[in-house]
């Protein structure tokens, strides 16, 4: 039994197989998620999914703000024209470094624009936001399109993040992150309430490296409003 790893290593070396190096990762700007996932992998597709108000966009804006702090050029391909520049600027996103492509609800245009941006190179972060697209339409995006994006982004330092309601990129993603809303924090008297924030939970469904289960309890984070 003890010789099995040696035999395996010998076989793999004879076949010329080399273990793939761990991808370079960058921080999301949310410490619990970074601890849980080890960061977002460069040169790979990351998918963030969840229902409305599950914190996908807040996490995305945090990632954009972190990329802006690294002085990287970012692009948001906004399939349903839902991006709010005011919220992003308030969260620290440098709008001068952000290319915003508005696709007016056309996912085909969004995929084409994302493909052009990935092939142009030089972007630190490209976001394909199809969260506003109905899941039945998002599911119709052929797997070949996702493979094409994955192939184009491989061996580049670019992060490609897909934001949706349901996972739709299948096996092309390197990191699949599910977002959930835990609770809403209200404050004040019943007749003068204030929306204070939302406690959110991030669950890695396809981690880059296996995370200890103990971290799952720490994955919740609070996004505060105003």
């Amino acid at each position: 039994m003890s010789s099995a790893p040696l035999i395996q290593a010998d076989l793999l070396s004879r076949l010329g197989w080399r273990p793939r190096a761990a991808p370079e990762t960058v921080a999301t700007g949310v410490a619990p998620i970074d601890r849980l996932t080890g960061g977002l992998p460069r040169g790979a597709v990351t998918e963030i999914f969840g229902p409305a108000s599950s914190g996908r966009t807040s996490l995305l804006v945090s990632i954009l703000a972190d990329a802006a702090a690294r002085q990287e050029t970012c692009a948001v391909v906004d399939a349903c024209d839902a991006f709010d520049p005011a919220s992003a600027a308030a969260a620290g996103v440098d709008l001068d470094r952000l290319l915003w492509v508005r696709c007016a609800g056309n996912p085909e245009h969004a995929l084409k624009a994302a493909d052009l941006l990935v092939n142009a190179g030089g972007f630190g972060l490209i976001v394909l936001d199809i969260a506003g697209v109905a899941p039945r339409i998002a599911r119709r995006i052929p797997l070949a399109s996702w493979f094409r994006l994955r192939r184009a982004i491989e061996n580049t330092p670019t992060l490609l993040i897909v934001v949706g309601r349901e996972p739709c990129a299948g096996s092309c993603v390197s990191l699949l992150l599910e977002m959930k809303k835990e609770s809403v924090v209200w404050s004040g008297a019943p007749n003068a309430r204030l929306l204070r924030g939302v406690a959110l939970q991030a669950i890695p469904r396809k981690p880059v490296r296996p995370a200890p289960a103990a971290f799952a309890a720490e994955s919740g984070w609070v996004a505060c409003q105003r």
């Binding site: 949310v30 804006v61 703000a65 024209d81 839902a82 709010d84 919220s87 620290g92 996004a223 505060c224």
Partner: peptide, 13 residues
Amino acid sequence: RERARLLTLRLFR
């Protein structure tokens, strides 16, 4: 810029 973790709005346009 100072970063604040804000709840972000997704707009319907």
